[in-house]
Design a protein around this nucleic acid. Sequence first.
DNA 1: CGTATGATGTGGTCAGACCACAGGAGGATC
DNA 2: GATCCTCCTGTGGTCTGACCACATCATACG
Lengths: 234, 234
Amino acid sequence: MADSRAWELVMRRIEDDLASGRLSIGDRLPAERALAAELEVGRSSVREAIRVLEVLGLVRTATGSGPSAGAIVVSRPEGAMGALIRLQVAGRGFDVTHIVSTRVVLEESVVAELAGGGVDLAAPAALLDRMDGTPDRDAFLALDASFHLSLAELSGNSVIAAVMAGLRSSIEGYVLAGADRLDDWPAMAARLQEQHRAILADIDAGDTDTARRHIHDHITGYYAATNLIPTTKA
Amino acid sequence: MADSRAWELVMRRIEDDLASGRLSIGDRLPAERALAAELEVGRSSVREAIRVLEVLGLVRTATGSGPSAGAIVVSRPEGAMGALIRLQVAGRGFDVTHIVSTRVVLEESVVAELAGGGVDLAAPAALLDRMDGTPDRDAFLALDASFHLSLAELSGNSVIAAVMAGLRSSIEGYVLAGADRLDDWPAMAARLQEQHRAILADIDAGDTDTARRHIHDHITGYYAATNLIPTTKA
DNA sequence: CGTATGATGTGGTCAGACCACAGGAGGATC
DNA sequence: GATCCTCCTGTGGTCTGACCACATCATACG
């Protein structure tokens, strides 16, 4: 995720200023020409960055002169819409923690319920096998989503299954955004598969507590590895 | 939403082509220079539009020549991230239905549980009163979200409450996106308040079925009125 | 004191020029 | 004939410089 393109550098810079507090809501950005000079890029690159930030709702522009002109920082990293959008664009974290904690709560109860009754884990196991033969990252992650969803369905808790189905695409978005930030995808895929199989083994053995812990680490570990949430040791 | 700016015109044009099927996934866009000539705008305007579409995931760019170069239509209405993004930018509907149905499932069970036991509805009622004195749309909707969330918390179902809390900002995003498409906001606000109070009355009266129906209509009605989901009569 | 009027600075746009890169065409080589 | 290499072409990415329309503000004028 290097700022290979000039406009990305500009955008990143502005976002950094916003995240670090150098820019606050309502502050006025330097003029496009000044920004271009300062960052040593062309004005067109600055404009492309501003355009993106404007569409993202981070900045508002106005023509003319005086205090009300120029590009002004408006919105905040608040709101899932903003967070999702920023995530995809800038690869930043913000409040992904929300959805991650939601996932953890849901999936922990899923595996707990599964570990209780003797269910047939053939379907999720088959998905794992398919994933082993899927080097393509995005295809792998789609199967991964199916795997987690199949667990939810097997749990018999229809509410959780429905919620997770509804969340599927959101979660996939975060997961993909995170994957973009990984250097060594094959290593991560191997790690995920290892954890997946450990969880299935836990369920099969009826070891509720271990299953909870494993799925907790599985989920938070992924987001932590992708730097989407703060790394937490516990 | 006039295409007052040239780059908006370009973006809209491409989005229209995509929506109408004139452009399909994988199709290659004309070269930037050709597009500029065709639409009679400058290349920089085309670039700003392309930049936005790229960030939105609708288009992919690559340098060089040959079939793999140029801007290529790529992503689709799939995924909540894409849906949210398209929604905000293009005002189009796509698959909001997913999150709406999730909300309905969740909130129906919430009011059902509330109608069962005798809980203190003072907190949500107070929120409704505050909303009456809140003409500002966004502030009103923020309170609205708090209202629904307070119901979830009162229900005592911690899983649902957690999920709804996690979803809050996502839902708010959709709700706001929908509100943008309403002509007469005050009328909608009044209608929402009427429905809110009816639901509280249902809960107070212990009328589970009516409460379910009312909250169902309340939620689906809003999204239908904003044309975010197909209008369904039932 | 109030009202025109011009100066100033801003975003919005355009045209033209490079650059780096990917792919294909076509020749050189075996 | 098949293979490799080289050059050419077209593309996005960028920069520069130039206008324009517009909002604001200082100034001059009545």
